[in-house]
Design a protein around this nucleic acid. Structure first.
Lengths: 248, 248
DNA sequence: CGACCGATTGAAGGTCGTCAAACTACGTGG
DNA sequence: CCACGTAGTTTGACGACCTTCAATCGGTCG
């Protein structure tokens, strides 16, 4: 059973394991962001950045650490620069269900901009780097420039679309198909030659199956040569065969 | 197998079975809407309504009829005034999966405001009445008044939240629990004394189980007295016992 | 080296899907 | 008015799949 330490309500300002702390602060760095085309601020113009007053920090987290915690009203939104983050909900019986994954360019905790409490626990799966943007900054920009609106809407739309495929592809059909779909999705997220496959427990929580079933299916895929170990925690996958398994 | 007639790309302007056609047209009617507090325009002020130029029509649909169809780029958003609508996706094998339900006050087809094609088929389950709002109206209002923004964001957030509970409650655990959760959700939507329970096929498509399993579980609930027929298509449900079944 | 954690595997039982048949409700047409 | 047809629901039988409980294996870290 997963028992990630629930310590703070939200990722603290000086984040415990933050290796790069406040490497960025404010406008100028955002404009030269390496993944600008992917992030929330992609459409902003030079003059818009002058509206950013509160600090935007970069935080770096290892596997198992939290970006934020469910049910607390946070004041930050997170843009993922690298890594993989799971959004988790706990069921009344104490088990967890993973509701979505976030990857590079995705935004976590958008609900904070509406004053809503976070709807999930955001836990790092694979080593992650994120920008922590104050909600005040979003609201400030949103009030003074229309260019953020469409980006925000598109983020919401993307979240809904992801949630929908989670239902149709990862929560439907027999376990083998679900695993195949999941691996294909993970392959989109990263390199199919060096794929990160989460723990069997997490795989189970994503697919609504038990850890053992997840293990059995994955072990079977390895025996059949559909996936093979490349490095510790990294795998090579045969996309074509996975496609056939996913959509028979 | 469901084979709803796929005729048009979007609900046609003079909708085939529209009983009340253009009962409303434009600003004045919206302001006196009976469910104003629930709808997208709830925050608008007197002067904002002057910005509505294109007609807002009221459409009335019977069970099985479509609001719109997936994969087409439509020019309308729909606000549900009455009834129940399912959002459907077809799987590669031809079966369908119901991804969400919409009820009074919910908005369907929001993705159209972003120029995106509709992501689902929106099919009426229970007799429905909806307002068809042109995307141009939304964009017009959105460009000239900030009061629509927060409403739009909240709609998106609500859609994500619904999608997430769909995963955690309706796509997780054994069939009995899923059915119990679904009935509780339907009871929120309408009156627990006179509950509409969709066809077994639809129940199956919502829960990711077969029609037969859905039938067996529901028939069993009736035998045990947890639900009972009140009128044709209407049922009374024992909420407390359902709660216990849903969260054992 | 030994403890520990995650992954794997086994065995048994329960749940669910599949295929098929019977039953019910309802509307149609004789 | 009743016979009949149709579509949806229910039920049965059987097998496949999945969960549960438990044991084993493999690697990592003190």
């Amino acid at each position: 059973m997963n028992t990630y330490p629930i310590s703070q309500t939200e990722a603290p300002a000086p984040l415990k394991p933050t290796r790069i702390e406040q490497a960025w602060q404010g406008p100028p760095q955002c404009r030269s962001c390496g993944i600008r085309h992917l992030v929330l601020f992609s459409e902003l113009r030079r003059e818009d950045f002058a509206l950013i007053h509160d600090p935007i920090d970069e935080v770096e987290l290892g596997a198992g650490e939290k970006l934020y915690q469910a049910d607390v009203t946070g004041r930050h939104v997170y843009t993922l620069r690298e890594g993989l983050v799971k959004l988790v909900r706990y069921l009344p019986d104490g088990t967890q269900r993973i509701v979505r994954l976030l990857r590079q360019g995705d935004v976590a905790g958008l609900e904070a901009t509406l004053g809503e409490p976070y709807q999930h626990h955001a836990v790092v799966l694979d080593h992650a780097v994120a920008c922590r943007i104050p909600v005040s900054t979003i609201q400030n920009l949103s009030a003074h420039t229309p260019r953020l609106h469409s980006q925000l809407m598109q983020r919401w739309q993307r979240a809904v679309a992801e949630a929908d495929t989670w239902v149709t592809e990862l929560s439907t059909g027999p376990a083998k198909q679900r695993v195949a779909h999941l691996l294909l999705k993970l392959a989109e997220y990263s390199d199919p030659e060096s794929l990160f496959i989460p723990s069997r427990e997490d795989v189970g929580a994503m697919l609504g199956i038990t850890t053992e079933t997840a293990s059995r299916v994955i072990a079977d895929l390895r025996r059949r040569g559909v996936i093979e170990r490349a490095a510790p925690g990294r795998h090579r996958v045969d996309l074509e065969r996975l496609e056939r398994l996913a959509n028979p």
